[in-house]
């Protein structure tokens, strides 16, 4: 109990609310880095997944991306991004940039694989019907395939979002701040209170992200599909053996 009281005292200490190591600043670094990385990750991965899923071309590429995504540890993405970033931009390549590059790389694989798997699972008869109604390819994609596959696509974005928020603390290693800065400071100073307080914030942030995206997923799926039980048109995605979700 004594320890928890110290943690509480840390949170209420005014010194932790001002200056260049303040909680709001660290939170802002964490959230802005996560949001920007996820947004860019989605902007890159979604079109690729949609193209591969719609045309069926490059399926091997999708599987390769998913395998690489699983094999390279989250720390590996940041570690590799660091020398690339500093090599290209010298001092400007420290801090936000390498963390951003690493997190974007981390965010891409789940979105590509889920988008691809979701579209592939759309019933061929549904495609035939849409073509028979005179839809052209883009209409077929946007009005039939994406709405039907939306649950699976959003699940991929959710996995990426949680992985990004959960890995963002490692940005502190490359000078990117975030809540991870407290963890590194605490470990260096043997300040268990600081480490613990930061870990709790990181865990809460990841769980909140998970819940927010779960809510979004439920909201965004067409009521027609939701009413039909477990989205009757969508077969479970046929991914290579392994979980869609890996702890990050």
């Amino acid at each position: 109990m004594d320890f928890l009281a110290q943690v509480l005292a840390w949170f209420t200490d005014p010194a932790n609310w001002t200056g260049n190591n303040a909680i709001p600043l660290r939170l802002w670094q964490h959230l802005s880095l996560s949001v920007v990385s996820l947004a860019v990750g989605v902007a890159i991965a979604l079109p690729i997944g949609l193209y591969i899923g719609h045309t069926g071309r490059g399926a091997r590429f999708a599987v390769a991306v998913s395998n690489i995504g699983r094999a390279v540890p989250s720390l590996g993405w940041l570690g590799i991004a660091y020398p690339i970033s500093t090599g290209l931009f010298q001092r400007a390549g420290i801090g936000f940039l390498p963390a951003f590059i690493g997190l974007v790389a981390l965010a891409i694989p789940p979105i590509v694989t889920n988008t691809y798997a979701g579209l592939r699972a759309v019933d061929d008869e549904l495609r035939e019907a849409a073509r028979g109604m005179g839809m052209h390819e883009l209409q077929l994609l946007m009005r039939v395939e994406v709405p039907v596959a939306l649950t699976v696509i959003l699940a991929g974005i959710r996995v990426s979002a949680v992985a990004v928020v959960a890995t963002a603390p490692l940005a502190a290693l490359v000078g990117g701040g975030t809540l991870g800065a407290y963890i590194l400071q605490g470990l260096a100073l043997s300040d268990e209170v600081r480490v613990f307080a930061a870990a709790v914030m990181v865990a809460l942030l990841a769980i909140l992200t998970e819940l927010a995206f779960a809510w979004l997923q439920r909201r965004a799926v067409s009521p027609g599909l939701a009413a039909a039980g477990d989205a009757s048109w969508v077969e479970p995605p046929q991914l290579p053996a392994g979980p869609a979700i890996v702890p990050s």
Binding site: F3, S74, V162, V165, A166, T167, P169, L170, G180, I183, G186, L187, E192, V195, F196, A198, A199, V200, V202, A203, A206, I207, E210, I245, P247, S248
Partner: peptide, 17 residues
Amino acid sequence: GILYAIPSIALFVLFIP
């Protein structure tokens, strides 16, 4: 499932105390 949702960097340090 709850344990699984906790980021590894947090879980690694949560038990240090």
